[in-house]
Design a protein around this nucleic acid. Structure first.
Lengths: 366, 366
DNA sequence: TTGTATGCGTTATCAG
DNA sequence: CTGATAACGCATACAA
């Protein structure tokens, strides 16, 4: 049970004052090159690491940021998205010696309570906020608390889901307060353009009836994807009756149910676009069960790629995103905000459509 | 941007000393019921929360525990196991006002480095350790650092994989140091008995040739499952040539490859047991691709249930565990250890085999 | 039962 | 350039 060395130990051993050690170790002027090197060496020898509590107490930052995942237990755990995101986040954070506090709760009220507690306890210097909503209470709360934050997944609230959708990049101006100035940084993916790619792919194959099995209706990106689908359909003169979205809770159960429902319609779609991989896999299973050939009679596309999309039969055409890269970008932005950079909206790499075996031209019979 | 209240504010407002406030708020004797109530009320009004840094610095604990996930990026993110585990862990931790530091790294050396850093920085009061290995450097490191810990997934090291396997419960005495005393608490699931259930189910259906598509060979529970399979086969007089395990890295790719390999043998197995859900799903896809009927010509069982197992066609017979409950148990045990309780090994609820459509009697042709 | 003094490890502000 | 000294917020041994 080793004892942890302190700067006092280093000072004694190096024969200097404690403040000299502090200066040397924090790259501040006020100490000669020579002693700085010596102090560094001693610290290294002793395996010294700053005591995070002491550092936090003396007005510095806590050296930790938080991430809360508010999801009903049901939809939790099958999606590949989050661990990949977290993995990317940590690549950046741990390089900057920042720890990540992670909490999963079952609703947005609990999430807000966590922010309040972390703030009151001074536990975190900032937070990463996921799943922005069309009507989101969190930016206002975080602004009031003065807790630096980055919205992951794009802008939300007043300026976010601008409704016009469709054309790439519109409305993505980041989170604003009443005055129109950005109050929160955000990183976002261009869902509108991604949806446009998907529609283009399906339209090019000859599909004219497309159903979008969307995720939770309250989420901002769900709204953006739905708006984009409408806009793309309109641009191609497609019948809005036959190109539309149905919302779900992202679970395999609702994904399967929605699939069954649209396939049972008198004029069923010839292509389905799923808002996550789990629902797409469920959709494949439903088609198999109903004896409907994929892609023979129905084409399927998954939003977000994962191992799942490659183990189905047929393998799923998917919208590939660099999720870990998205996490890295978000973490970088949060570190920048903590360092004093003004809020901004940063766009991640474009999603890329990877055609596999689940999409093909619709059969002539239809 | 509200200011955070301190005990000084409370003391002033309640007209008492700071120490009285500290006593009152920490349920210590030395303050009258009356003033205690008044202080409590004022603290409530002001929305006071203890500053975690100050508390940590003054010798108390940091109020945080850590969890490191060391997985190659590849196998990360499709398994349902971890988020569920974490979700259970947090139910208990947040009730006890303990935060969770979460870190994902890509190997065990990096994991050990994280423990060292957390310890040196005094960031955590204890850690939850997952994926115990047959030859595990972590218990020794943690013991040397004096960092309280709970091994999740059973004992490891000297006493753990006792090799005899088979009969339920043996060798599960927890982590020991040289002297034979427990040095680390652990929570474990009875993999041996679970495997026995699976074998019993398959044997009962008439299967005599079983392949176990196991996970990472270095993990303790992999060793336990393999040992149990051997023992169960022997107990039933089955040919060890035809009842055996092959190891993988848990990925869909290796799961698929292993499936292909064993199915191509001259005398292929009639039943496959997969060590996780992802590989089982991959196995289903391989069978579909090869035109081998499931469960007609081959039966399949998945270890760990998830939405995945219910969206395949046919749906997968699975070994259902209460993963969140497992997490709760682990967190409870860690809190107990932090409160001074001696190390012990706690067994979680028995896994339960849920027969679905992927298992059936082997065809007579075989 | 209550108030006072001190320490935890660091950073920051002063004098030398 | 260096060395004392005071915060930071809380806990606690001790004195009143």
């Amino acid at each position: 049970m080793a004892r942890r060395p302190t700067i006092k130990d280093i000072a004694r051993r190096a024969g200097v004052s404690e403040s000299a050690v502090s200066f040397a170790l924090n790259d501040r002027p006020g100490v000669s090159q020579d002693t700085r090197a010596r102090i560094r060496r001693v610290a290294e020898e002793l395996g010294w690491q700053p005591n995070s509590a002491a550092r936090a107490l003396s007005g510095e930052r806590s050296g930790a940021v938080g991430l809360v995942l508010a999801r009903p237990a049901q939809t939790l755990g099958v999606e590949s998205f989050f661990l990949q995101l977290v993995s990317g986040i940590q690549e950046v954070l741990s390089a900057g010696r920042v720890a990540l506090l992670f909490q999963v709760v079952d609703g947005i009220d609990a999430e807000c309570a966590v922010y309040r507690r972390w703030w009151a306890e001074r536990r975190v210097d900032g937070v990463l906020v996921v799943d922005p909503r069309t009507d989101d209470p969190r930016p206002e709360l975080l602004a009031r608390l003065g807790l630096p934050a980055v919205m992951i997944g794009g802008a939300s609230g007043a300026s976010g889901a601008s409704g016009t959708g469709g054309v790439s990049g519109t409305g993505e101006t980041g989170e604003t307060d009443g005055s129109g100035a950005l109050s929160l940084s955000s990183v976002w993916a261009d869902d509108a353009r991604a949806m446009a790619q998907v529609v283009e792919h399906l339209y090019g194959l000859g599909h004219r009836r497309i159903a979008h099995i969307a995720g939770l209706p309250g989420l901002a990106h769900t709204a953006r994807r739905m708006a984009s689908l409408r806009a793309e359909a309109e641009a191609r003169g497609l019948d809005p009756e036959h190109v539309r979205s149905v919302v779900t809770d992202y679970s395999d159960a609702e994904g399967a149910a929605a699939t069954r429902r649209v396939l049972a319609e008198p004029e069923p779609p010839t292509a389905l676009v799923y808002d996550n991989d789990v629902m797409a896999v469920a959709g494949i299973a439903v088609a198999a069960e109903l004896g409907i050939a994929v892609p023979g009679r129905i084409s399927m596309v998954a939003w977000d790629d994962s191992a799942l999309c490659r183990v189905t039969h047929p393998r799923l055409t998917a919208l590939v995103r660099d999720t870990a890269g998205f996490g890295r970008l978000a973490a970088e932005e949060l570190l920048a905000v903590l360092a004093g950079s003004p809020p901004r909206a940063r766009e991640s790499e474009q999603p890329r459509l990877e055609p596999r075996e689940s999409t093909a031209p619709p059969t002539a019979a239809y």
